[in-house]
Amino acid sequence: MRRNIKFLGAVSILMIVLMMALTACSGGTATTAATTTAAAATTTAAAAETTAETTVATEAAEPVELLVSAAASLTDVMAELAEDYKDVNPDITITYTFGSSGALQNQIEEGAPADVFLSAGKKQMNALSEKDIPLEGTEKDLLENKIVLIVPKGNAKGITSFEDVATDLVSMVALGEPTGVPVGQYSAQIFTNLGIIDEVTAKANYGSDVRQVLTWVENGEVDCGVVYMTDAMTSELVDVVAIAPEGSTDKIIYPAAVIGTTEYPDQAKAFLDYLSTDRAAAIFEKYGFSVL
């Protein structure tokens, strides 16, 4: 019995030591974060006392970290933009957090310390606007994503348009589930507008999300599928054969805004402006986004 207690004690001590070691490892980051916060507090205090112009001047010299809450579909492109922005403005570090736009919206509403919000839908941004959360005048439609028809690499069946899905060329098409998956709703809109929804529904196989649709097409388990341009661009195994005809579906807009509670409104605005430059547009386009 006694030995058991000793063993239990030993395990606890071991765990505590391990924890301390790990905390020591990460201590650097924790301290930096604390320092940044302290610096931020000082800057804010200074900003309150001085005029807007001088604030820009004093703050520009100090390293600033902006936290960007970005929709999960922006993961890769944001990583590259953050890297690129180091050259544009070396004093500003871009840190980002990813999630579904709805979750990000909730986090921002609950006061998560985000400086910039990049949403994959207007709905989430509008919800924040209703609560006056974005900084006035900073909201804008930044990007557009397109709905595309994809086929397995090589296009053996010779499919060239959305209309072809209704023909005998296609025996099975992968779509997003039309009630719960946004891309499924857009797909249904397109085929309804083209007047072929019944024919298409008869051979549809519904994926639980857009990635599943992509996987099915990649593996050739279906003849074609409907996904976002940005998803199609991530895969080497599919070809984009058609873009949804203009007006056949609602536009898929990615809005952006500076969050009102930011400690660095000027830097955040500058970053947002950078996202609209040709330099950033070239990066966005590489990933399949169109800059508005």
């Binding site: 980051t29 936290l67 999960a72 993961t75 840190t95 990813f98 991530t234």
Partner: peptide
């Protein structure tokens, strides 16, 4: 947040999301 709060489970989610 990569490097700060991104755990392995969250990294898997992010990797899958970005293909």
């Amino acid at each position: 947040i990569p490097g700060r709060t991104q755990t392995m489970a969250v990294a898997v989610y992010t990797a899958v999301q970005s293909g």
